[in-house]
Write a protein that binds this DNA or RNA. Sequence first.
RNA 1: GCGUCGGUGGCAGAGUGGUCAAUUGCAAUUGGCUGUAAACCAAUCGCCCUUGCGGCUACGUAGGUUCGAAUCCUACCCGGCGCA
Length: 405
Amino acid sequence: MRPISFSIEKEHPGSLARAGVLHTEHGDIKTPAFVAVGTKATVKGISSAQFSELGVQTIIANTYHLYLSPGEQTVEKAGGVGKFMGFSGPTMTDSGGFQVFSLGEGFGKKLSKFLPENASQEEGVSVYNEELATSHGKLAIVDEDGVSFTSHINGSLHRFTPERSIEIQHALGADIIFAFDECTSPAADYEYQKEAMDRTHRWAVRSLAAHRQNFEKNKQQGIYGIVQGGRFADLRIESAKTLANMDFDGYGIGGSFSKADILGILDTVDRELPKDKPRHLLGIGEPEDIFIGVAAGIDTFDCVLPTRNGRSGGIYTNNGKLLVENAEYKEDFSPLDTECDCSVCKQFSRAYIHHLFRSKEMLGPTLASMHNIYFLTHLVERIRASILDDNFEKFRDEFLGKYKR
RNA sequence: GCGUCGGUGGCAGAGUGGUCAAUUGCAAUUGGCUGUAAACCAAUCGCCCUUGCGGCUACGUAGGUUCGAAUCCUACCCGGCGCA
């Protein structure tokens, strides 16, 4: 008996969409589900005490960040990442594979996971820490055995291998851990993408072995393998097939996509993955993309956008996104989203939150993040309900019709 | 009243004869963010237009010197400080 198991409640006839329950030792996750990102054992700006009110069933923390601070041993002594942050529900940890990209090829550049539409890559350079960027160029260097990181905090040198990532994730103690992978730049060419994918497969074997070898942890934590292959459909399929043969407890789909064919790629990928195992789409979370993911059989999503946007006043509403800091909301005393039932919308106005942002009061980002998290978790909850009610497409079309007006 | 220092774009504050419509910060306006290097980043920020190494008006006010003035001179107005 594995520590996590997945049961499908309902499969949607017209697509790969399904509604299910992901069982863990810390509770069930009703899927599809939105996973709040809690990189450093905190969903930025939001207390774990608010999770249930916000519809947060589960969070995903980060191996690299918690390893650097406070150190995985501290988290282990605390009783694991969930207990450490005062959350009793299910948790996940990402392996640090994304940092191979964000501190490597992505460092100092304005690159997202998505390949821009008419992309000439490497355009704007926005350096957050110019000194670090110029002295190191990039902070992550990949080789066959693993990745060498220069800490973005103090420049110290660190080494991650698949075995080390798993060891740290054992200490962090989340219910679901991820194999150590290489998240490539969306700008990477086919040749490099294939090379990185093959390496990720070798690392997947090692990650899985490292986990299964640890008797104790193997009984407590489930492990997901991560499909790579970038924007190339044939690589994606190859990756999915390869990983499907490895008997992971679930599958993550990582890396970059081109906006145009994300649906097609996800759809074919998920057809290669075992149907009865949960699939997590890493780092994707715009409402449009979530519908696409669900239709392609994704069960869980995580994304920084609700909190990152929230921190700078970007608000999700049923009628699209708005920037609450904009002048037009100065005296708009309506709630952020008139159709939202969250505690923020019940109690506060756009004008007030606008004022908080203008005055640089920390409550502004907090309220905005709370609303956004609620918005996303409940959007996915509504999607789940629509699958159970057999009207997924209808709900999708209605929602997007309004949202994208 | 005398002396002295100073008056620059919404604010603060650079500039002290040409490449200055004027550095920089803040404010303002708008946009971006997809496994968090992010409470962040970017663009715009005198007026006009056919958006150009374009035209016009600008550095307290009015004159003057000069090929050329935010920068030099004179007078006046206003403010700080000192002395009466």
